[in-house]
Design a protein around this nucleic acid. Structure first.
Length: 384
RNA sequence: GCUGGAGUCGUCUAGUGGCAAUGACAAGAGACUGUAAAUCUCUCGCGCUUCGCGCUUCGUAGGUUCGAGUCCUACCUCCAGCA
């Protein structure tokens, strides 16, 4: 589905945008979703522990899948044979595929990997066989998967990378973007470029301007929230990038999912986000709740660890104001029990809650933008 | 009653002369940001001034030994076989 982005309203006090993404199918039918938007992650063609119906009930727009994982299993050939990723996984909303660039960073962390101009050599985590991923290959796989949004193959450098390394890296990422764009061959698929450059203003600016010159369907900001990157650096990466991105294209901050980070990034002009944290935290027994907790690194997401003994006799829902299926029907004591017993349904119920929590949070931000009171919304949010 | 075997952290378990003592589970807590994660880390005899010190522990009571969960004796309990 081809994508069109329109700004509905720019918030008066900040750079926040209320926008809409309109997807138009081959037959002319459209699907429209408002931004700011949170996109749940379904790496292996499934949002872990959830059926498509359960995902749908959280009211998401786009969901993610991953090129690297689907490349190895079941292979793009199988997905093509199934009639594309939508048919294969029974998800008929929009799908964004990440390029595999992040896997080079996360899988090969502390391990042998070889990033060359041509591409990246690393080892399969499934069977140890040598793999070689190039920008062309990543795009070709995504073409075959037939996702709605393909991401350029970028290098996601660690937060510890220094200026000299990053300068080199962003230039190579630009060349990789160019190469990927050249082989991109799926008229129904949108292709996004990715801005890199760490926390450095000139690098982000350079990367953004050069990426925009290539004219993509949308732009992502990558390389944030890695390792122990400070929140300050993350927000810098965002505010040094967005000024150089076109107003009429959607802006995607990759991998960010803490409510406080969503808010700070929306204020700096970001539209869409994805993150594994709601589903991972869920499988680990944690439920997102309103407010923040203060840490030495600043305000962080607030959450309940339902495995804690204190919830054994707590017969209230996770959130009294939450409208999700879990909060409408189940108590903390029940979730505590399920997580203690290792029952899969516990992970499902918490995933539903956490995803809905972030999507609802985006809905609240949209209302605040519409009414030009996003800073007030932030003050209120940080007060809790 | 006789013969053989066994009794170690909440549970199961390692341990045949140097041990506050193995592993698993349970329990208590923490971490998690483009998913190698339904995973990982820490604590888990008691007390303290807790990168250390002190005390008390391996069914009970004695004994041998510089030193005993480990060897010896008696007793208690459980299991198996024989009566």
């Amino acid at each position: 589905m081809k994508l069109n982005y329109k700004v509905i309203h720019t918030e008066k006090q900040t750079k926040a945008r209320l926008g809409k993404i309109i997807f138009t199918d081959k037959d002319g039918t459209t699907q429209t979703y408002e931004t700011p938007m949170f996109m749940p992650v379904g790496t292996q063609a499934t949002v872990k522990t959830l059926s498509p119906e359960q995902v749908k009930a959280t009211h998401p727009g786009i969901i993610l899948a991953n090129t690297y994982h689907l490349w190895l299993r079941p292979t793009p050939e199988v997905i093509k044979e199934a009639g594309g990723l939508h048919e294969f996984m029974n998800w008929h909303g929009p799908i964004l595929t990440d390029s595999g660039g992040y896997q080079v960073f996360s899988l090969a962390k502390n391990k042998k990997k070889d990033i060359t101009e041509e591409g990246v050599h690393f080892k399969s985590e499934i069977d140890g066989r040598p793999l070689f991923l190039t920008p062309e290959k990543s795009i070709q796989i995504q073409n075959m998967l037939d996702s709605d949004i393909a991401m350029s193959f970028d290098e996601c450098p660690p937060a510890t990378a220094d200026y000299a390394y990053l300068k080199n890296s962003i230039e190579r990422t630009l060349r990789w973007a160019e190469r990927g764009k050249k082989v991109h061959n799926n008229p129904q698929q949108n292709l996004f470029g990715i801005v890199q450059g760490g926390p450095y203003e000139d690098l982000r600016k350079f990367s953004a301007i050069k990426t925009v010159e290539m004219d993509f369907d949308g732009y992502a900001i990558g390389g944030v929230a890695n390792d122990d990157e400070s929140k300050d650096d993350m927000y810098k990466a965002v505010e040094f990038s967005t000024p150089y991105l076109p107003n009429d294209k959607v802006r995607y901050l990759m991998g960010v999912g803490e409510p406080v980070d969503l808010l700070e990034s929306v204020i700096r002009g970001v539209d869409i986000f994805d993150c594994v944290s709601p589903t991972r935290l869920a499988r680990h027994g944690n439920a997102l709740v309103t407010g923040v907790r203060s840490t030495s690194q600043g305000p962080k997401e607030n959450r309940l660890n339902l495995k804690n003994a204190r919830f054994k006799h707590d017969f209230t829902p996770i959130g009294t104001t939450c409208d999700c299926y879990t909060c409408q029907n189940y108590t903390r004591a029940y979730l505590h029990h399920l997580m203690r017993c290792g029952e899969a349904f516990g992970a499902t119920l918490l995933s539903i809650h956490n995803i809905r929590f972030l999507i609802h949070f985006c809905e609240q931000m949209r209302e605040a933008i519409r009414e030009d009171r996003l800073l007030e919304f932030r003050d209120e949010f940080l007060k809790n």
